[in-house]
Design a protein around this nucleic acid. Structure first.
Lengths: 155, 155
DNA sequence: TGAAGAAGGTCAAAGTAGGTCTAAAGGTCA
DNA sequence: TGACCTTTAGACCTACTTTGACCTTCTTCA
């Protein structure tokens, strides 16, 4: 029994890839209707699966004629990927956020699946995932070091 | 008279060999129901019979739509890597030895150049290369965690 | 202009499902 | 038989999902 959240996620992703420009506009209540769930379920999916760290931007408008716009952020070659990534990582970072970023890099085809697993394993082994003092800082340092290598060397 | 643990083990192995790709996805509570035991019994079987050391990788998810995925690693295809994990690394290992092994893996085309760089860098960043207490053990753990990824055949 | 209605936002509680730990029971073997 | 290892059961923990009540923002129209 796959859960509704996953189904809605797939649906939005399918629409995104069908769209040109990676933009989908929808009405929250309509989607909820379509999937027979409460509207806040849509918000939940958006928050957990289409976060900024996973490479999406959400724009919304309330009131009559309201909408939700999901925008897939693709990096173009000219942008300094490192800067963007570094900004997202900051001085400390949680394991969950790392995994989101890794997913994003994989979706963007900047890293392979194996490299993604490799990084995840390293982060899991090297840093405790619960709020142990300093673990967030250590994780950020290791993650940055790994990204540095990946982004400096071609596949 | 075989015990429940053995029966569950056989069941999972049967499903694995019936599957293509050596992957089985299941629900812990359902299996427990099927075999009339407590759910933690399933965890016990997984921990004792399907550990990484025995050639399996377990992935799980909690909450609604949760599951347990058992992935069988192809042991024969991974002889070199297993040999490194069990024979060469041991409980501790020096940075120099790691680098030699990584070089070997690259020469054998078991890893890409980028993966080699990644591994080396991680080991350099995470563990001091001079005889600091315990660093050899930590290095061994990290190296093994990274090599585990190479055993997966789900790409 | 301001009240009504139409969206989306937020948050907490309840529900679902796997993880961990430990005590007790069951086997094995010298 | 006693020491030791394995298995079983259950209490409690943590993570993820679903639902619903209530809040805020925006548009429309009298």
């Amino acid at each position: 029994m796959p859960n509704i959240a996953d189904i809605i996620e797939e649906y939005i992703k399918a629409r995104l890839s069908r769209s040109n420009g990676g933009i989908v506009v929808m009405r929250r209540s309509e989607l909820a209707e379509k999937f027979q769930c409460v509207p806040s379920q849509i918000s939940y999916v958006l928050n957990t699966r289409f976060s900024f760290n996973r490479g999406y931007i959400i724009e919304t408008r309330r009131g009559g004629g309201g909408f939700i716009r999901v925008i897939r952020v693709s990096l173009d070659e000219s942008e300094d990927i490192l800067d963007i990534i570094y900004e997202k990582i900051g001085d400390e970072i949680s394991l969950g956020e790392c995994i989101n970023l890794i997913k994003y890099l994989y979706d963007e085809e900047l890293i392979t699946k194996r490299e993604a697993h490799l990084m995840e394993n390293v982060l899991e082994v090297t840093t405790p995932n619960n709020g142990v003092q300093g673990s967030g800082r250590q994780r950020a340092a290791i993650f940055k070091a790994m990204l540095m290598v990946l982004l400096r060397h071609d596949k």
